[in-house]
């Protein structure tokens, strides 16, 4: 039977206990609990963080979705809203925070910068999108997204949570509890440890190209 039908079983409940008894599936109950208390990590990077704060205030009131409890420690947070430009210097702390969050955990890329680098993409210190390092669940466009857009993104995340099944989710299966992302290293530029061989090869290739170019220049000079 598919999940949708399981979640809405058509049992006849006797009239006199209808107020006290309801029939549902474990998935539905479990997801209802989780979707209604998604605690974000209190963590803002740039301009988007201000709109994130505004979404928590009286006019927009994200508490309606159970998302008002901002947790300053990653150990208590369910969701990381990457609100702003991710810089190379800031990336190692962000990855470390993500690794410290317990499962189930979700990542929301809020705004153009966190999704792709945005207006600052060409900058030398800017990571072109947090999804190069962390698995992103919801992208929210805008620069910055309005609080309404953020709330829309949150509702999309809730829909995503609704579709998860307790039997299939990663964190109840065998194997490590959570997948750790290797923490990037600040070198002459940002070093992603997962790409070490690739970087070494490309650096060697650029140096070969440079020496060849230098050599050909040298030939020209000598021939003239």
């Amino acid at each position: 039977m598919d999940n949708e039908k399981l979640s809405l079983p058509q049992y006849d409940i006797p009239q006199d206990i209808q107020n006290a008894v309801t029939v549902t599936t474990l998935d539905r109950l479990y997801n209802w609990g989780r979707r209604s208390s998604v605690w974000p990590l209190m963590f803002g990077l740039a301009c988007c963080a201000i709109e994130m704060i505004v979404a928590q205030t009286a006019r927009f009131d994200m508490a309606r979705f159970g998302m008002e409890v901002m947790r300053p420690t990653p150990r208590q947070a369910d969701m990381m809203i990457v609100a702003g430009t991710v810089t190379k210097k800031m990336l190692p702390p962000i990855v470390r925070l993500y690794n410290q969050m317990p499962e189930p955990k979700y990542v929301v890329a809020m705004g153009a910068c966190a999704s792709s680098g945005g207006p600052f993409k060409e900058g030398y210190n800017v990571v072109a999108g947090i999804d190069k390092f962390l698995p992103v669940d919801v992208y929210i466009p805008g620069c910055p997204p309005t609080p309404q857009a953020l709330i829309h993104g949150m509702i999309k995340l809730q829909e995503k949570i609704d579709r998860q099944s307790i039997g299939k989710v990663r964190w109840y299966r065998k194997g490590p509890d959570s997948v750790e992302v290797p923490i990037p290293i600040l070198g002459p530029d940002l070093i992603d440890p997962r790409r070490n061989p690739e970087i070494k090869d490309a650096a060697a290739a650029t140096s070969r190209a440079a020496t060849q170019e230098g050599a050909s220049h040298g030939d020209n000079a000598s021939s003239h």
Binding site: V127, L190, I199, K200, A203, A204
Partner: peptide
């Protein structure tokens, strides 16, 4: 970009040898 990313390394750079 040779690294397919916003990256630029010195010639013959070896990330394994880098001591941060």
């Amino acid at each position: 970009n040779p690294y397919q990313d916003n990256l630029k390394f010195p010639q013959d750079f070896d990330p394994e040898q880098w001591i941060p």
